[in-house]
């Protein structure tokens, strides 16, 4: 059997926020006409959630779905279920102009948590991460330092980040630097 490993084997860093690499996460990229009923039906069945609105993400206990672009969705599920869910999704989309691909092993997922989590990420991304502008349910693709990343908020003090696996070490590094002890900015007042 293969010894399945996520990019950084649950690496963690504790500074003004806690950075954790979250391990293996099932992810399916789905491209197609997201307004088409057949695609909506197949996507919601695969994710176990409703359809997300523009720049939104929706989650359930075992899955999630994020709006990536006008013709792209990202379906999240437990890593062990991704093959089955992809097969069902592909079957449901037979004959439809759409593409579903397992990208789980092409990505890495991080969690940044704590009262300063927002400012750690805001140091690296050209995005308004104030609690008023970015709250749970929002989803944003952007640039994190020099690489592409996608961000959402689990709660007010917890952000999650997806990046390409090939740059996971880089992202962990810049997040750790941005979270160094004593580097609080205090721009977003907690609470």
């Amino acid at each position: 059997m293969f010894d399945l490993q996520s990019a950084l084997a649950n690496a963690r860093f504790d500074g003004i926020a806690q950075i954790r690499e979250l391990g293996l996460q099932g992810m399916i990229t789905l491209r197609g006409d997201v307004a088409a009923p057949v695609l909506k039906k197949a996507a919601t069945a695969a994710s176990g959630t409703a359809m997300p609105g523009q720049r939104k993400a929706v989650f359930s206990d075992t899955g999630g779905m994020a709006w990536m672009s006008p013709d792209e969705l990202l379906i999240l599920c437990p890593y062990a279920e991704v093959t089955d869910r992809l097969e069902a999704l592909t079957d449901a989309l037979a004959g439809t102009h759409a593409l579903a691909v397992n990208v789980s092993d092409a990505r890495a997922v991080f969690e940044v948590s704590g009262p300063h989590a927002r400012e750690v990420v805001a140091k690296l991304c050209p995005v308004d991460l104030s609690p008023q502008a970015f709250s749970p349910g929002d989803f944003r693709r952007t640039r994190m330092a020099q690489v592409a990343a996608a961000i959402w908020a689990d709660d007010d003090q917890t952000l999650r980040i997806i990046c390409f696996r090939s740059v996971a070490r880089y992202v962990f590094g810049v997040l750790s630097v941005a979270a160094q002890k004593g580097s609080e900015v205090g721009y977003f007042q907690a609470g």
Binding site: Q54, S69, P70, P126, R141, T142, R143
Partner: peptide
Amino acid sequence: PCCGVLADETEL
């Protein structure tokens, strides 16, 4: 105009 984000030039 495709996703509605106010993007600064470093994102473009």
